[in-house]
Design a protein around this nucleic acid. Structure first.
Length: 249
DNA sequence: AATGTTAGCAACCGCCGAAGT
DNA sequence: AACTTCGGCGGTTGCTAACAT
């Protein structure tokens, strides 16, 4: 079987993303969604392979991606799930709202593994114990922790991570389940609040991100005035959500 | 201050399974 | 059934800032 290479070796950029590339990708995905990652860079005006765009969006640009220090609870969750699941980083990350598999993996390798090694009774590469995987369902039931955990299987499209404010996650069957981190914060001052407000108002944003009648018109697409801050945060413009609704997104 | 080493993280690579043709 | 395409995943690499000498 011959597979086409994921990257055209000629003319495609590699390496660190520039703010301009971030802006283009964010603007495009925000408006049109990720209808086809391989085709997307062409329409978004990016000299990147689709995989690179997907990775950048999922791990960095996507709204609600939580960055910065891990809480004690998050670290304990990673350690506990790693004991149960092994290196199934996407499944572990699914239990940590806002964290990506890449970030969880990095944190494990850079921090937690060393700490883990210091404990003589810890298992470095534990067998995957008693994981029951239902191939048809979206839930993975782990019977070792008590109470049993129900993990979402990896989602195929950009899924808004649950907000810190409501400490809940949206399951694939559109039910909302509270997560075990529990504490509800009243702090609405963080920079994600604008986007989160939009998510609440428009459930179709992630499920109907693409309208086919003019998706090809990237050259005249509306590009909001994003501000990319030094720490990686993105400030969405005032009225951004209203404008999205005007586009029937 | 200069150089070497380490840690942390962003990004790439290659493989796999699912879905489509 | 065979092949192709795509999204997703985990392993790995390479860059850079921080730290040590």
């Amino acid at each position: 079987m011959v597979r086409t290479p994921c990257c055209d070796k000629t003319g495609l950029r590699k390496g660190t993303w520039t703010p301009e590339e971030d802006r283009k990708l964010t603007a495009y995905v925000t408006r049109y969604g990720c209808w086809n990652w391989r085709q997307l860079p062409k329409y978004a005006g990016l000299a990147r392979c689709g995989k690179s765009c997907r990775l950048r969006w999922m791990n960095y640009l996507r709204p609600n991606v939580k960055r910065g220090n891990y809480s004690k609870e998050e670290e304990e969750t990673i350690i506990r799930l790693h004991e149960s699941l092994g290196n199934r980083w996407s499944a572990i990350a699914a239990e940590l709202p806002g964290r990506t598999d890449n970030e969880v993996k990095n944190h494990w390798h850079t921090t937690l593994k060393k700490r883990f090694k210091q404990k003589p009774d810890s298992k470095e590469n534990p067998e995957k114990e008693e994981t029951k995987l239902n191939n048809n369902a979206s839930h993975l039931v782990i019977s070792s922790p008590n109470p049993p955990l129900i993990l979402e299987s990896s989602l195929s499209s950009p899924q808004p991570a649950s907000s810190d404010q409501n400490s809940s996650s949206i399951t694939s069957d559109n039910t909302v389940e509270s997560n075990k981190f529990g504490s509800v914060s009243d702090d609405n001052s963080n920079s994600n609040s604008l986007f989160e407000a939009y998510e609440v108002d428009s459930g179709s944003f992630w499920t109907e991100p693409f309208f086919s009648d003019n998706y090809y018109m990237w050259s005249d697409m509306w590009v909001p005035e994003f501000q990319f801050l030094d720490d990686g945060e993105i400030l969405y413009p005032f009225g951004f959500c209203d404008q999205l609704e005007d586009f029937n997104l």
